[in-house]
């Protein structure tokens, strides 16, 4: 989607581009090339929209930065926030909402889970389709100006090929070991996420129903976590998750350490964050 990809460009670059496009449209109209003029006009419109978006994002960031420090926002403490997106609209840009949810989970997660967690603990949600394009924007932004932002929403890497793992998002500031995904990692991360959610619920005085529902969804797939949805104890869920986690943890850590070392050794900065598409399977190297 062109409007999203352009969102990552700087305002200055967009302004230059808008200027160029206007000239091109004028030339096409005078030359009588209707088809070309039409496509150029559409492009111009997109560029202008992108310019508006960048401005809006900058404005949002300004407001939220002056309102509170990023740290206090990341805690689950403000889960009692009852505003719904319909009423007020999201206060934060999408990437910060995703960052909030991922910071609570502390493990790579799929857009759907990120949106659900954000809804449960931060009272706003977003369409998961937007999250998919977010990763592309982040990559573009990183390529244009590496490490210019304090963090990037990046990909989790498949441990064998170090390619972007399908549908999982992570935060660039996390250690590589957490961002690579071996065959046991989906289960380990699921259990870790359950523990983090149980802890977050324990911290809030009056958890909202959405948060308890989320916890039940986790508990239902962990042996011994809870008998049914109405008798669910965060502490019990945490203990059950930790019990199963202790079974998988060692094997998973070994795989992840090995893959992370390989990633650091083999990949350039951008690939470390967004994965590589070139074949470098672990097994082939050993052979």
């Amino acid at each position: 989607m062109a409007e999203v990809t352009e969102g990552a460009e700087t305002v200055e670059a967009l302004e230059r581009r808008i200027g160029q496009l206007r000239v091109a449209v004028r030339e096409a109209v005078l030359a009588g090339d209707k088809a070309r003029a039409k496509t150029l006009r559409a492009e111009l419109k997109r560029a202008e929209q992108a310019w508006e978006d960048v401005l809006a994002e900058a404005e949002d960031a300004g407001i939220t930065q002056s309102a509170q420090s990023p740290h206090s926002r990341q805690s689950a403490g403000n889960a009692g926030r009852t505003a719904t997106p319909e009423q007020t609209g999201p206060l934060l840009p999408l990437r910060e909402q995703v960052h909030e949810a991922l910071s609570l989970l502390q493990v790579p997660a799929a857009p759907k889970l990120i949106a659900t967690v954000h809804e449960a603990f931060f009272a706003t949600t977003f369409p998961t389709t937007r999250v998919t394009s977010l990763r592309r924007d982040e990559e573009r932004s990183f390529r244009a100006a590496p490490f210019a932002r304090p963090y990037y929403i990046c990909a989790a890497l498949a441990a064998d090929f170090l390619s972007p793992s399908r549908g999982l998002l992570a935060v660039s500031t996390w250690p590589m070991e957490r961002r690579v995904i071996g065959s046991l990692s989906p289960r380990v991360d699921f259990l870790q996420a359950a523990i983090r959610i149980a802890e977050a619920i324990e911290r809030i005085p009056a958890p909202v129903p959405a948060a308890r529902r989320l916890l039940w969804r986790f508990a239902a797939s962990i042996p011994g976590a809870a008998a049914d949805a109405s008798h669910i104890q965060p502490e019990a869920v945490r203990q059950a998750a930790e019990a199963e986690l202790s079974v998988h943890k060692d094997a998973d850590t070994r795989t992840r350490r090995e893959a992370a070392a390989r990633a650091r050794h083999q990949l350039a900065d951008t690939e470390q964050l967004f994965g590589t598409r070139s074949f470098r399977p672990a097994a082939d190297q050993e052979a």
């Binding site: 090929f161 390619s163 793992s165 065959s183 046991l184 998988h248 070139s278 470098r280």
Partner: peptide
């Protein structure tokens, strides 16, 4: 068994 919880996605191979 509880230890058997591996999940491998074969939907693509290194992006291919």
């Amino acid at each position: 068994d509880i230890t058997e919880a591996h999940y491998s996605d074969l939907g693509d191979v290194g992006g291919n």
